[in-house]
Design a protein around this nucleic acid. Structure first.
Lengths: 221, 221
DNA sequence: CCGTTAAAAAATATCGATATTATTTGACAT
DNA sequence: ATGTCAAATAATATCGATATTTTTTAACGG
């Protein structure tokens, strides 16, 4: 049938598009945490076959966005304060390691990339929330991607996504609260460009802890 | 056909058994690193259908034991010194966090479990290598499982498995070299039961580093 | 002889249908 | 009423077949 016929847009497979869409639905909370995910229901929602849906759910399981129950199908991963705090803890620890390693490998090419991403993020801050989300992630990942530690990067990216989910949960999606996030990003960037690992990591961790405390305060037990 | 008819042995689905078997084959090196994994080939090898094989491979992708290539199927994840050293680095960092958290939550029930697992491991050391492998993992995971940090535990378990692969690679599988591993385990256990987190973690990390240096020395570029 | 392109072969990705569980419903006995 | 068990229903897991790529092979021209 109409499988995979795009003019030529990178990766196009029914599985991959289903994966991206489902992920978005879960991150934004349109598929609420804990909800049973029935194949048929998703198949109709995404206008695709059962196999791609199954496989996409399988992939989301590794991202810890979906849980698989014995022989009883899938459900959106539940959320909770303990889970949120574990994510925060792991992010602080893992990103510190990654940022230090990135700074150890610092070169001008990487620094250029950082400056660019930072600029794009600030640009996007005036635009749609989704655009800023992407640019924000791109900046944070760029901070880590010079470590040349692919598994660590993967963990950090996973945890980043899991965290997004709590932001959408805390506020309909729109609200990045008005703390001076821009200044915090600037401090992280400056310290990194100075190759001052201690300063950069402490700014980064502080950045996460503040956001964390804000979100954590909004959650119950 | 003969699907899922076992007298009653826990989890039995074609996918799950395929997952376990494939995992074993990759860990032991019977499916060599980097090798193309063709569905048909595995389907015949495991005596099952194509769907379970596909899904098992998908799951192994999240364990980083299998890589997925665009539209070109799967292959056993490649190995290399850089990868090995990243695993070692992450294990040292993550397990330290987990062990400290476990000790923070220490209670006598957990301590009993540790002592038992340690005993079983020593018992198993005289038996088949595969049995010791299991008991060894069980002991190490028990050290971490009192942290009540499920994601962290999952990462540690994943990394543990990835490391096994390098042991099989370095030596046909039989050789745990004769360093005094027993004494090292005893030191870790003793310090943990004393609730001395600094000592326990440094013994643990030293334990990994020694094994790591040994294996690393056996590898090229 | 080598590189380019077209046809053939192989392998993956996807679909639709079936077999196998889980879950719900409702009858029956306590 | 209430709890248990069996039939009916719904959902998952698996199979077999088809469509779509990717890879290989071979032909052709430079």
């Amino acid at each position: 049938m109409n499988v995979m016929l795009d003019t030529d847009g990178k990766e196009t497979s029914a599985t991959h598009t289903a994966y991206l869409k489902l992920r978005e639905l879960i991150l934004t909370g349109e598929l609420p945490a804990g909800q049973k995910l029935k194949i048929e229901q998703l198949r109709k929602l995404l206008q695709t076959g059962a196999s791609p849906v199954r496989e996409a759910l399988s992939l989301l399981t590794s991202d810890m966005l979906v849980e698989r129950l014995d022989q009883r199908g899938f459900r959106a991963a539940p959320v909770g304060k303990a889970n949120f705090e574990e994510i925060l803890l792991l992010r602080c620890n893992l990103e510190e390691i990654a940022l230090r390693a990135s700074i150890d490998n610092a070169d001008s090419e990487w620094e250029d990339r950082l400056v660019l991403r930072h600029h794009h993020m600030n640009r996007a801050s005036q635009q749609k929330a989704a655009d800023f989300e992407d640019a924000h992630k791109a900046f944070h990942m760029a901070l880590l991607d010079n470590a040349k530690l692919p598994m660590l990067e993967r963990y950090c990216a996973q945890l980043y996504d899991l965290n997004i989910r709590y932001r959408y949960l805390a506020a309909g999606g729109a609200s990045y609260q008005k703390r001076n996030i821009e200044a915090e990003h600037q401090s992280i960037l400056d310290a990194t460009l100075d190759r001052d690992a201690d300063s950069a990591t402490s700014h980064l961790i502080e950045h996460y802890r503040r956001t964390g405390e804000y979100l954590s305060s909004q959650m119950d037990g």
